[in-house]
Write a protein that binds this DNA or RNA. Sequence first.
DNA 1: CTTGACTCTCCAGTAGCTGGAGACTCCATA
DNA 2: TATGGAGTCTCCAGCTACTGGAGAGTCAAG
Lengths: 271, 271
Amino acid sequence: MYRIGEFSKICRVPVSALRYYSDIGLLPPVATDPSSGYRYYEAGQLPRLNRILALKDLGLSLDEIGSILDNDLSAAELRGMLRLKQAEMSRAVAEQQAQLDRVESRLRLIESEGEMSDYEIVLKEIDAQHVLSLREIAPEPSHVGTMIGDGFAALMPAGIMPTAPCFSLYHDPEFKPDHIDVEIAYPVPADVTTAPQTPAGRSFGHRIVPGGKMAVTIHQAGYDTIDQAYGALGKWLEANGLGMAGPPQEAYLTAPDDPGGPITEIRIPVE
Amino acid sequence: MYRIGEFSKICRVPVSALRYYSDIGLLPPVATDPSSGYRYYEAGQLPRLNRILALKDLGLSLDEIGSILDNDLSAAELRGMLRLKQAEMSRAVAEQQAQLDRVESRLRLIESEGEMSDYEIVLKEIDAQHVLSLREIAPEPSHVGTMIGDGFAALMPAGIMPTAPCFSLYHDPEFKPDHIDVEIAYPVPADVTTAPQTPAGRSFGHRIVPGGKMAVTIHQAGYDTIDQAYGALGKWLEANGLGMAGPPQEAYLTAPDDPGGPITEIRIPVE
DNA sequence: CTTGACTCTCCAGTAGCTGGAGACTCCATA
DNA sequence: TATGGAGTCTCCAGCTACTGGAGAGTCAAG
């Protein structure tokens, strides 16, 4: 019979961990002195402890290990659990590796630029949205602003409140300033499928804008400098080896008269 | 000004996380109603939030992010931090990958055997130990037991108590049952460097048995079946792509008269 | 009997939230 | 004006596998 300190030296597991295993019932001492509370172990417990350490090393939680040891699982059942773990772990490794890649591309970016960009790009999972939308070919960029106002002018009186900021989608495969295939989308509840014509005579369509992973950044300045944001996004996509998977979106997060100036969120679906 | 729920919808960060960021001062709301406690946010905070998310995505802790944002670190300083992170993360990835490899080799082992082995093998970091030791060529395996007893018979009367169970080292490059180059080692405090001759006339040497990573398993049965343990260790080493890096050790963890039978720990230095 | 090494229990802390309890607040409708 | 429902508040516990510390008790040797 060893006291906890001696046993700890033999099995090379810290005393605090042995006490913890004893507390959670994973490796109770073979005897406990009822008056002093001293825990007593013996060499015969080493196989169990070794099993614990081996399974822990495979990434199982102490809970799982406890049920494996106490239900005396068959090899087949253990194999099943390990298969699950294996899948989970290879996903985790891939994710970690992706994160490491992001750090590396970020470092390359910093080193090539010498300074930090004003834009932070983040990958987000965006939900699909029910929208009412207007789509047309705009002859110049400023035309988009009038379309947005026109749309609101139809929705508000009809009692339709967008459930999120309105945004535009740019459907052109390439950018031509005098021929912009733009769609203005107003997120609405799923049961709103129609709206009256706009004052300027435009008609709303109803559809679901698909969700998915998107690279997102914030442009906090006038619309005339928005190409900087697109530039930063483009660089980021390239550095991370991602490509566009749909039309870019621009969400207008401020009221037109906001004293802080306009703020636009740009989203590019990826992969 | 948005309430927390609206802001959460816009930035796609859970309300609970926003509250947490507000609590730790990382992203305080732009205003808080003193009577109701309601937090109010505005679109102008999105760039900061995006920076937070981007840095978090690179693996920085919220603490680190806070000091980066509030001390307005230069690109060079950020680069330094990221370099550190990068090193740390690639170590973590390698470790995870190694763990995944262990799971895979374990699965292969289970599948090839169809049942679980009685031996669990664990990699441990073993400390170097000061020992007094006897070394000689044993003409048969049972000779080792008499050597151990002979050593104790010299140490005990001299007042030298081993600080850990005694163990043997097998120096032969290959095993021959009638010619075993064995060393019996008794761990002692660093200031004990000599001991009297044994009753049978053997002389102790003093040395440091080097530590390092070792594959460890427990054999809980008579010495005549110890080759099973070595077999399991050999398979494990092969499955994990490791080789021996020194003489195997056997530590005798039970007294000769233990009612539970003898328990032996076998350690093989690796890599 | 003292000393020093060892052990005990209990609690807080770790990172970044999440979820719940119980109490308010806000807004729109009846 | 009352009410209902959705949203919000604060505080606290929980997650993992321990670690470290406080304060008290135990054991063996001198």
